[in-house]
C-alpha cells in the first residue's frame, strides 16, 4: 500500500475502534449488559485504577515485554541461522529439516510442563516457551526465502566472481529478506500469544499472571478487562513498531 493512503487508513481504523468502545459504553449504561460481570470501558478503567496503582500495571507490562523480547530474540536468531543454513547447505538441510518438521506441530504450550521441570518457574521457562513460538515461523520463512532465490541472480553473481559464503551474504541473505520479514512478524505475534498463555498457567508476574490472579483471588473483573485491553494494546504497538522497522529495512526496494 502507498504511504499516501496510510494516514487515511489509520483514521478509518481509529474510527472503528471508537465506535465499538462507544457502543460498549452505551450498552452498559442502558443496562443491556450486566456491569457486574462486564463493566463499560470507563467504569472498568476507573475501578481498576482504584483497586491497583498504575505502577502495578506498568510493572506487569514491563515483565511481559521483557520476556517476549528476550524469547523472541533467541528464537529469531536461532530460526534465522538454522533456516538459512538448512536451505543453503544441502547436507545440513537433510539433517535438520525432518527434525524441525517433527517438532513444529507440537503447540508451544504443550511444552510448559517440561519447561517447568527443566527450567523451574523462573524466567528461563518463559523464555523457552516464547522461543518456541518465535522459532518455528522464523526458521520456516528463512528456509523458504533462501531456497527460493531467483536463479538468475545467482547466475549473475557467479558471473561477477561470487561463490560460497560471499554469495550467501551478498545474494542469498538479502534476497531472502522479504520472506524473513514476514516470518519475523508472524513469530512476534505468536511469541506474544504463547507468553500470555504461559503466564496464565505458571507465573507470579506479567500481564497474563495479573489477570488470572485477579480471577482466582476473587478480585475485580475491571482489572481483568483492563489487563486484556493492555495485552492487545501492547501487541498492537510493538507489531506496528516491527512493521515500521521492516519498511525502513526493505520497503524501498521491495515495495509495500
Amino acid at each position: 500500500m502507498r504511504s499516501g493512503s496510510r494516514m487515511g487508513d489509520a483514521m478509518w481504523g481509529l474510527a472503528g475502534i471508537l465506535i465499538v468502545l462507544a457502543a460498549w459504553e452505551l450498552a452498559t449504561r442502558l443496562g443491556a449488559i450486566d456491569p457486574t460481570i462486564f463493566p463499560g470501558p470507563i467504569a472498568a478503567i476507573r475501578s481498576a485504577a482504584q483497586r491497583l496503582p498504575a505502577s502495578v500495571f506498568l510493572d506487569n507490562m514491563a515483565w511481559s515485554l521483557f520476556r517476549v523480547v528476550g524469547g523472541f530474540i533467541l528464537g529469531a536468531v536461532a530460526g534465522t541461522v538454522i533456516g538459512f543454513a538448512a536451505g543453503w547447505y544441502r547436507g545440513f538441510g537433510y539433517f535438520a529439516r525432518p527434525l524441525i518438521e517433527l517438532l513444529r506441530p507440537i503447540p508451544p504450550l504443550a511444552w510448559i510442563p517440561l519447561a517447568i521441570i527443566w527450567f523451574g518457574l523462573g524466567e528461563p521457562s518463559k523464555f523457552f516457551i516464547v522461543f518456541l513460538g518465535a522459532f518455528f515461523p522464523i526458521v520456516t520463512s528463512a528456509y523458504h526465502g533462501i531456497t527460493h532465490v531467483d536463479p538468475s541472480l545467482i547466475r549473475a553473481s557467479r558471473s561477477f566472481g561470487l561463490k560460497g559464503l560471499g554469495m550467501l551474504f551478498h545474494v542469498g541473505i538479502p534476497a531472502s529478506a522479504p520472506d524473513l520479514a514476514t516470518g519475523l512478524r508472524i513469530g512476534w505475534g505468536l511469541s506474544f500469544g504463547v507468553l500470555v498463555a504461559a503466564e496464565l498457567i505458571a507465573a507470579n508476574r506479567g500481564l497474563g499472571f495479573m489477570i488470572m490472579n485477579e480471577r482466582t483471588s476473587g478480585g475485580s473483573v475491571s482489572v481483568i478487562i483492563v489487563g486484556i485491553l493492555l495485552i492487545g494494546l501492547l501487541n498492537l504497538v510493538t507489531d506496528a513498531a516491527l512493521a515500521a522497522f521492516i519498511r525502513r529495512w526493505i520497503g524501498r526496494w521491495h515495495g509495500g
Partner: peptide
C-alpha cells in the same frame, strides 16, 4: 567475460 542477461538480473536490494 562480462554478462548481460535476458531479464536484467539486477539485484533488487
Amino acid at each position: 567475460q562480462g554478462m548481460v542477461f535476458q531479464q536484467h538480473a539486477l539485484f533488487p536490494w
